[in-house]
């Protein structure tokens, strides 16, 4: 029982982590909360559902389709809703936030129009395959979710730590002006960041479909709020914080349901976050004061 709950919690937590990574990457580079991220995630889930359930195509095609569509949505978001507001005098610093809220409402309505309201079944081809090790039952779906998440998080971390473009992104996140002076094409880095973050949201959407077997056009809102809570919890803009925060939220939710009451699921999870923030206001991996030394 405990081992199964642990696996459930880690599976859920790794999905949360991937959603939160999408927020944290964009926040790191642009210093804005992308309120449309949850709806882009929801679109990924629906594209995956159409490919896997309606077209009976393999799961890999669902991932590919979701990545393509959400990456394109991310590109449009940057070009239409974010870039025109950047670096212009007289634009309020809240303007990009409002503009992403606009995009999120647009996407939610669009999903309603295209995919309909209400729950839609997300049928993973191998949903019933499971293994029993001792008294612990593990579903293949969970293994796939974990594998995809680990590869995604590991790949992202390696890319940020080792590659030229990854370092360019980190430099841009630390200081747009310095990165530009070092020769980084920051416009391109920003576009790439929003596209990558959105594609990760799309992958998370397919993973949620696999984990819960149903989706609707409201999942973007609840997942979006959780993603936001996680990056505040983990430390704004911190990649490690998003991963750790996602796992902690997933685990605490799962164990509250398993050993407490499902009615308190979200309440306890968010209570944990509030307590941690009271003790460590900058979040788990956050920096207390930006640029302490100059």
């Amino acid at each position: 029982m405990f081992a199964e709950q642990l696996i459930n919690g880690i599976t859920l937590g790794s999905i949360y982590a991937i959603v939160a990574l999408g927020y944290t990457l964009v926040f790191g580079v642009l210093d804005i909360i992308n309120m449309a991220h949850g709806e882009i995630f929801m679109f990924g889930a629906f594209i995956g559902m159409v490919i896997v359930t309606k077209m009976n195509a393999p799961l890999a095609a669902a991932f590919a389709g979701a990545v393509l569509v959400t990456a394109a949505l991310g590109y449009l978001l940057e070009r239409v809703a974010l870039r025109p507001l950047r670096g212009r005098t007289g634009v309020s610093h809240l303007a990009p936030l409002i503009s992403t809220i606009g995009v999120s409402i647009l996407l939610e309505n669009l999903a309603h129009h295209i995919f309909g309201a209400g729950n839609q079944l997300f049928e993973t081809p191998f949903a019933e395959i499971r293994f029993t090790i001792g008294s612990t039952t593990v579903y293949l779906v969970q293994v796939v979710i974990l594998a995809v998440s680990v590869v995604l998080m590991g790949g992202l971390s390696l890319w940020l730590a080792r590659t030229r473009s990854g370092k360019g992104l980190r430099a841009t996140a630390e200081s747009l002006e310095t990165a530009e002076l070092l020769g980084v094409d920051t416009k391109r880095i920003i576009t790439a960041t929003v596209v990558i973050a959105s594609a990760m949201g799309g992958i998370a959407g397919v993973l949620v479909g696999m984990a819960f077997n149903y989706i609707n056009n409201q999942i973007g809102l609840s997942m979006g709020l959780k993603g936001l809570a996680i990056i505040i919890f983990g430390g704004m803009g911190s990649v490690a914080g998003a991963m750790a925060g996602g796992l902690i939220l997933g685990l605490s939710e799962t164990f509250v349901v398993a050993y407490g009451s499902s009615g308190y699921r979200d309440a306890i999870a968010f209570l944990t976050i509030i307590v941690v923030l009271l003790l460590r206001p900058q979040g788990l991996f956050g920096r207390a004061a930006p640029e302490a030394r100059r």
Binding site: R164, K167, G168, R170, A171, E174, S175, E177, T178, A179, L181, L182, G183, V184, E291, R293, R294
Partner: peptide
């Protein structure tokens, strides 16, 4: 003010110098 990337290592700062 020198604009050192304070969160990146000294080596990474140097690598960023050769970014292009």
């Amino acid at each position: 003010g020198r604009a050192i990337l304070s969160r990146m290592t000294v080596l990474e700062n140097l690598e960023m110098g050769a970014y292009q």
